[in-house]
């Protein structure tokens, strides 16, 4: 009988309007969209490796591309999204790596704080190693 009453299963309409229903959903989507910029930037690095393997002229042309307005604009956007990814990722570390010492759990702020501190040290070390300052 039930089959006669509903010959077709109910299909919930699939839309993406849900993400505008709450600022939290929009922030989630911004975080997820960081993958386009991190992935895109990694592919840019692969293109840089290609030019490096092809010799000096090709590599200089790659650097010239970085100096274009599009190159600068992409870098600024990618830096903003990548930084947002780092912040959200480290804020989640207490959930992913809860740490128990004896009876008590290490406070969330100490776990994410340690990650933020390490991020700062690693970033400065990388910039220093590359000769940025």
């Amino acid at each position: 009988m039930a089959e006669e009453m509903s010959p077709r299963p109910f299909l919930r309409p699939i839309t993406s309007e849900w993400l505008f229903r709450h600022p939290r959903y929009l922030r989630y989507m911004v975080r997820e969209f960081s993958c386009l910029f991190i992935g895109g930037y990694t592919l840019l690095l692969v293109a840089g490796l290609k030019s490096l393997s092809e010799g000096r002229a090709a590599y200089e042309a790659f650097l010239e591309g970085l100096r274009s307005p599009a190159g600068i604009a992409f870098h600024v956007l990618a830096l903003a999204f990548a930084t947002y990814h780092s912040i959200t990722w480290f804020n989640l570390t207490p959930k992913a790596l809860p740490l128990q010492l004896g009876e008590a759990f290490v406070p969330d702020v100490a776990i994410s704080g340690a990650h933020f501190a390490l991020w700062g040290v690693l970033s400065l070390a990388l910039l220093y190693f590359a000769g940025a300052f």
Binding site: L45, L63, H75, S86, W89, L122, L126, L127, A130
Partner: peptide, 30 residues
């Protein structure tokens, strides 16, 4: 990527702005 990608982007952004870090010179990087 959370740890190193922002710093990497800063390096190539500096190169794009005309302040290429030493490591990004052809001979050094090669």
């Amino acid at each position: 990527t959370a740890f190193v990608t922002p710093a990497l982007i800063v390096l190539t952004l500096l190169a794009g702005l005309g302040y290429a870090p030493e490591l990004l010179g052809y001979d050094r990087l090669h």
